[in-house]
Nucleic acid binder design. Structure first.
Length: 559
RNA sequence: UGGGACGUCGCCAAGUGGUAAGGCUCUGGGUUUUGAUCUCAGCAUGCGUAGGUUCGAACCCUACCGUCCCAGCCA
């Protein structure tokens, strides 16, 4: 389906109507992460949506760090977030924004709220505040500090700002309705004391605005027209609107909510992802098994495949769980089109071609991509001794087996057809070598005797090849919903999510591997050069070896 | 009867009163020097359930059922 005929999602329809009515002149969205962790596949949806909306309707999208809680945040995260957004292929409008850029304005507006008798400093401690708030079924009751005079509130708020109170001693609350059925409206706290150093503002402030107070105003200041967030903020919308109505903001942005992206066999809770790192289940946040943007990048997923996947899932208010196969499909689809092909033997088994001259070295040409000539060709070296995969030879097999069998023929991909005569075994009975013959004149043609080969297998010269390590990944969890229903997700961790294969032999073209896109190791899968491959300090210059991460295996419908 | 959001194929998802798009998965066939790709075909007499309105309902009305969210000085 082309972009034109793809039906608009509900937010796109709203925007289209706003543009048509003239309510919106130019669409302005924003991606507003809190820099308190690494971005994951769930954030990718928000990124694609916000930047995508702007692009689709000729607008712009800001990148804003919602940094109102200094204790949890760090510049390390702002850097990684910038990198991830760029890598995904998006460009934010102008400079990067920080909610902390608006702390002065937010403070001034808070003072206005106090002057209008719409906010008060409350000295209830945390526990008391909770008790006064009531419960889901019972109304709350007014704080004893709710009716202080404006002058008193102004003075108290100034003392808060000046650092005269300890953390938790008091907070600025907005006066709405302690009996509201919407818990968010029961006099929410808009400023609290935090004597922490902020990664952007340093020690300038010891009071920080809450998300609810800061977010909408930040949107208004930046001229955001459509403030898109996830469903859990639906109940915050009346609050969002309350601030916009009660403050002299320069614009009136609107909030719209969509459902989060969930993928089965995957978790996206920041806390849980951190636990995987902390408890060494994975090596780091960018471990190729992680659902983080950086993990997927290291694994070999392309930005386009992630964008396509996100597009394929749609934007709605239904909370569902997308099947990983939908993600895998997007990866396979993009990689099939772009990945250069190569041959790599995972478990080498020597094959000696007894009718091939010992000294002979033949250079064969193969396409880099069989369906795309423009990608050019590569050179293969053919010799008397080669390696094939152990799985590709059997002494006997039924006719469903299309590989090399003793007494039968097989096509060596991009090379000769060979026929196996016998095999050599070690004392344990394991096959360690196959004795075979090439069928003359079969490069690029079928045998003159008319006896064709049933299958095709990859191979590599035993003398001319590149040794490499392959890291083969499987799903991180064995459970469809690892953290559903209060389950301990750590118990469903797949103990075999990583298998390291060493001594793998790749064709010589891999001596100088490309590092921006995975290779398709034909008949095996897509493999991406690991970013650590060339600069692992432990191994030293001489011991560097090629390390490839398996991005994803090829579809295999062989039963 | 706290409030709110949501229920269309195994999974996503169009559809907004005129007789159920599409994608993923799955199944079967064809092509193929990758058991890949590509290609063809199949896959909801039914839209949470039960009533009602209507010539006609996934769409409107009523009741019920189910799932998720809200009681951080987190976002």
């Amino acid at each position: 389906m082309t972009e034109q005929e793809k039906p608009l999602n509900f937010i796109e329809k709203i925007i289209e109507a706003d543009l048509a009515s003239g309510k919106t002149k130019q669409v302005h969205t924003r991606f507003p992460p809190e820099p308190n962790g690494y971005l994951h596949i769930g954030h990718a949806k928000s990124i694609c949506l916000n930047f995508g909306l702007a692009k689709k309707f000729g607008g712009v999208c800001n990148l804003r760090f919602d940094d109102t809680n200094p204790e949890k945040e760090d510049v390390e995260y702002v850097e990684s977030i910038k990198r991830d957004v760029e890598w995904l292929g998006f460009k934010w409008e102008g400079d990067i924004h920080y909610t902390s850029d608006y702390f002065d304005q937010l403070y001034a507006w808070a003072v206005e709220l106090i002057k209008a008798d719409k906010a008060y400093v409350c000295h209830l401690n945390q526990e008391e505040t909770r008790e006064y708030r009531g419960s889901l079924k019972e109304a709350g009751k007014d704080s004893p500090y709710r009716n202080r005079t404006v002058e008193e509130n102004l003075a108290e708020f100034e003392k808060m700002r000046a650092g005269e109170y300890e953390e938790g001693a008091c907070a600025l609350r907005v006066k709405i309705d302690m009996a509201s059925p919407n818990m968010q409206l029961r006099d929410p706290i808009i400023y609290r004391i935090k004597k922490a150093t902020h990664h952007q503002t340093g020690d300038k402030w010891c009071i920080y605005p809450s998300y609810d107070y800061a977010h909408g105003q930040g949107d208004a200041i930046e001229g955001i027209t459509h403030s898109v967030c996830t469903l859990e903020f639906v109940e915050h919308r009346p609050l969002y609107e309350w601030f916009i109505e009660n403050l002299p903001v320069p614009a009136k942005p609107k909030q719209y909510e969509f459902s989060r992206l969930n993928v089965n066999y995957t978790i996206t809770s920041k806390r849980k992802l951190k636990q995987l790192v902390d408890e060494n289940v994975v090596k780091d946040w960018d471990d190729p098994r992680m659902p983080t943007i950086s993990g997927m990048r290291r694994r070999g997923y392309t930005p386009k495949s992630i964008r396509d996947f996100i597009d394929s899932t749609g934007v709605t208010k239904v909370d569902g769980v997308v099947d990983v196969s939908q993600l895998e499909f997007a990866v396979l689809e993009d990689l099939n089109e772009k990945a250069p092909r190569a041959m790599c033997v995972l478990n080498p088994l020597k094959v000696t071609l007894i009718n091939y001259p010992i000294e002979e070295t033949e250079y064969l040409t193969a396409p880099v991509h069989p369906q795309n000539e423009e990608m050019g060709t590569r050179t293969l070296i053919f010799t008397r001794e080669i390696y094939i995969d152990k799985d590709d030879f059997r002494e006997e097999a039924n006719k469903k087996y299309k590989r090399l069998v003793k007494g039968k023929r097989v096509r060596l991909r991009n090379a000769y057809i060979i026929e196996a005569d016998e095999c050599v075994k070690d004392e344990k009975g394991e096959i360690i070598e196959v004795i075979a013959r090439i069928i003359e004149n079969t490069v690029g043609k079928n045998p003159e005797d008319g006896i064709k080969a049933k299958g095709v297998i990859q191979w590599v010269s035993a003398e001319h090849n590149v040794d490499c390590e392959l890291r083969v990944y499987d799903r991180l969890f064995n459970e469809v919903a690892p953290d559903a229903g209060g389950k301990d997700f750590m118990e469903s961790v797949n103990p075999e999510s990583l298998k390291v294969l060493t001594g793998c032999k790749a064709e010589i073209a891999l001596q100088d591997p490309v590092s921006d896109i995975p290779y398709q190791f034909e008949r095996e899968g897509y493999y991406f050069l690991d970013s650590d491959a060339e600069n692992d300090p432990e191994k030293g210059i001489e011991n560097q070896k090629l390390i490839f991460n398996r991005t994803i295996s090829l579809r295999d419908t062989w039963k």
